[in-house]
Design a protein around this nucleic acid. Structure first.
Lengths: 255, 255
DNA sequence: CGTTGAATTGACACCGTTCAACGACAGTGG
DNA sequence: CCACTGTCGTTGAACGGTGTCAATTCAACG
């Protein structure tokens, strides 16, 4: 389980820390075998443009990506994706997305054949449901972003954002004990928190001065995690963490 | 098809105007028969409290509801639900929701037995996928709300909100040609648009003065719809409307 | 060592919040 | 029929958070 990456190089991080432990070996195999090819991309490269036809579904294998919608003058980042995340399940009904996907740093993408995926939906209810669950988790995160934007000031949004990213990185083993590294710039953070780079800078400074979090060139360091959570109003329950796993026993796979 | 309500009193509006037309008669029947009982509720009544165990899944039959999270001092409305909407599919993995559900006006709820629903997921891939698609549509709406909050001023958010609600009401035949009626108050609109009732009032006045939309005690009247859409930056594509239906042929049911 | 993108700072205007009050309307009961 | 009452809607003024513009510093890299 610790080294699932070796057995399942493309999909080993799918639902890691969430419900992966209840996926049967058979299903892990099937999932891994869906990935027919890989693709690499560099920082800032567009992995997909909104409105275009999707030819493959994708899973993020290495690196990060974000989904965004570019306005005439500004950019809004709607989601942040990490290794193990499915990038475009929401294209299922219309075979296209309503947002762009952009690589954040160097990225490896696993490509899933559309036809085989469609077939899987009919033949593998366990896996189907699991992917659906991933989707619901994504949606829960989206709800939190909405909530955050509605009710928090810029610096508190930032605190919440940092807390969420940190926790999600922990799930897949990419965090340090006192923070994390990230290819995100302050401009990215601004676009994620619905503010301007300039004001984001003030927020970064504020968190630094108050001693809640220190962001410096892609390295975030936190001394008092409880204070961070408190300040940003962060409660991890919406991330479907495994500590809650008693509650989804009914998903226990058949095989 | 016009009078699906009579044949399917509880679920006749499910996916109406979106993908309902491609649901087979058999599947419509199965769906309708999932509803084992109905429940009524009055304005403001809590249909569900966050964190509690879900005993039934629900579909909204008549009236409106919203999902929200109450802060110590304020309320954030995260979603607005209309007849035909499933209210708590996102409780599938954890059997609980991370938000409250509140009735808006008088409401009729159809209750779906959990066990039968779980069984359906294994035995009816068509329906499963359809419900999943509904979910994706919900998520797309959530993304738009996030986007709206990130980038628009209060009065433009309101314009977008009005445009969305109007379009969704049209789908299920509950709109007028020049607007719609709604149990929403300005306070509700404020909670949906991430602002205060006072400022929402100013936004309402502004839309009225500019001649874009006239909100008066639950009645919204619009003369120039194009202007409304323009002002709020509203593009309906994220709602999966049927005019796009050529693109989801592959979902054509087997039966 | 110069170039480039990122981070930082100050000044100022504007959008939105807050507090406090008043006005309009619908439902209720005398 | 009218007074009472509560909810919703409306308004003004002061304050604070945020956007904007312009300019400077900093770190990384060839």
């Amino acid at each position: 389980m610790m080294t699932d990456y070796h057995l399942y190089p493309a999909t080993g991080r799918f639902m890691m820390g969430r419900m992966r432990q209840i996926i049967s070996t058979r299903d892990r195999r099937i999932l891994e075998d869906l990935v027919v090819s890989t693709k690499i991309a560099r920082n800032g490269q567009k992995l997909y443009s909104r409105g275009n036809d999707i030819d493959h579904f994708s899973i993020l294998v290495e690196g990060f990506a974000f989904s965004c919608i570019d306005d005439s003058k500004s950019r809004c980042i709607l989601g942040l994706h990490m290794p193990g995340d499915l990038l475009d399940v929401s294209a299922l009904p219309l075979h296209r997305l309503d947002y762009d996907l952009v690589a954040l740093g160097s990225v490896v993408i696993g490509q899933i054949d559309k036809a085989r995926f469609q077939h899987l939906i009919r033949s593998e209810p366990n896996l189907t449901q699991l992917i659906w669950m991933f989707n619901l988790c994504d949606a829960a995160i989206q709800r939190q972003w909405t909530l955050k934007l509605s009710k928090l000031t810029a610096s508190r949004r930032l605190a919440h954002m940092i807390a969420e990213i940190w926790t999600r990185l922990e799930l897949i083993g990419l965090a340090r004990s006192d923070g994390f590294e990230t290819p995100l710039t302050q401009a990215h953070l601004a676009d994620m928190c619905g503010t301007t780079p300039i004001h984001m800078n003030r927020s970064v400074r504020e968190l630094r001065e108050v001693g809640i979090a220190d962001f410096r060139r892609g390295r975030i360091q936190v001394e008092d995690r409880a204070a961070l959570h408190e300040y940003g109003g962060f409660e991890s329950s919406y991330l479907f963490l495994d500590k809650d796993s008693e509650t989804h026993k009914e998903l226990e796979p058949i095989g």
